[in-house]
Amino acid sequence: MFDRVLECWGSDEFPQAFKQAIKSLELEELPLANCCNHSAVIDEDSIDVMILSSHETDDQIQIKIGVFFCEILSGCACSDDPSQAEILENSYCELLAEIDRTNAQVKFTSASSAS
């Protein structure tokens, strides 16, 4: 999955390839629950990634990312307005993605704990 990302490293295609690879991950593979402030229920369609910085070592490519997402807050439809039954709350998290250069495996950690 991240093979294409490794192929694009150092080119103009890298950011787009990385974002597409992130979008193809299962929600459980991104450690976003620790960044939730409200419900820990995440709207999978709301995830958007911004690359903050990146660099390489002999063994891996390290990418610091900002992840924007929405938490789903369950409400009530007391006013008989079903649109009020589900509310989305904007959230943000910074992660460090480390891509192993030998097997294209990716590992995510909190950017604050990796500092």
Results as ranks from 00 to 15, higher is better:
residue 4 R to P: 06
residue 82 P to H: 08
residue 105 Q to I: 12
residue 70 C to Y: 09
residue 62 Q to E: 14
residue 5 V to Q: 02
residue 100 D to R: 04
residue 32 L to W: 00
residue 92 Y to Q: 09
residue 47 I to Q: 00
residue 19 K to Y: 01
residue 62 Q to T: 04
residue 49 V to S: 01
residue 31 P to Q: 05
residue 37 N to K: 14
residue 40 A to C: 10
residue 60 Q to P: 00
residue 47 I to P: 00
residue 111 A to C: 10
residue 19 K to F: 02
residue 109 T to K: 08
residue 87 I to A: 08
residue 31 P to D: 04
residue 65 I to D: 00
residue 90 N to G: 04
residue 47 I to L: 01
residue 65 I to M: 05
residue 56 E to M: 05
residue 67 V to M: 10
residue 30 L to P: 01
residue 17 A to G: 08
residue 105 Q to A: 15
residue 79 S to I: 02
residue 65 I to Q: 00
residue 61 I to R: 05
residue 35 C to E: 03
residue 76 C to Y: 14
residue 25 L to V: 07
residue 28 E to D: 14
residue 2 F to I: 13
residue 109 T to V: 15
residue 2 F to N: 05
residue 30 L to I: 13
residue 105 Q to K: 12
residue 91 S to V: 03
residue 24 S to F: 09
residue 53 S to I: 00
residue 90 N to K: 10
residue 52 L to I: 12
residue 55 H to G: 11
residue 48 D to R: 12
residue 71 E to M: 02
residue 94 E to W: 00
residue 33 A to P: 00
residue 38 H to M: 08
residue 73 L to S: 04
residue 68 F to N: 09
residue 1 M to S: 14
residue 28 E to L: 11
residue 34 N to W: 01
residue 108 F to N: 09
residue 27 L to W: 03
residue 99 I to Y: 05
residue 57 T to Y: 06
residue 66 G to A: 11
residue 112 S to I: 07
residue 32 L to V: 03
residue 36 C to N: 06
residue 80 D to W: 13
residue 52 L to K: 05
residue 102 T to S: 15
residue 91 S to L: 07
residue 40 A to E: 13
residue 82 P to C: 09
residue 60 Q to H: 07
residue 107 K to P: 02
residue 37 N to W: 03
residue 93 C to P: 04
residue 62 Q to N: 11
residue 6 L to R: 06
residue 88 L to Q: 11
residue 14 F to K: 05
residue 69 F to M: 04
residue 38 H to F: 10
residue 57 T to Q: 07
residue 78 C to K: 06
residue 103 N to T: 11
residue 59 D to L: 13
residue 88 L to F: 14
residue 14 F to A: 06
residue 109 T to L: 12
residue 61 I to M: 11
residue 27 L to Y: 06
residue 6 L to S: 08
residue 83 S to Q: 13
residue 30 L to M: 11
residue 114 A to H: 12
residue 67 V to D: 01
residue 82 P to N: 07
residue 52 L to A: 03
residue 77 A to S: 12
residue 103 N to D: 15
residue 31 P to W: 01
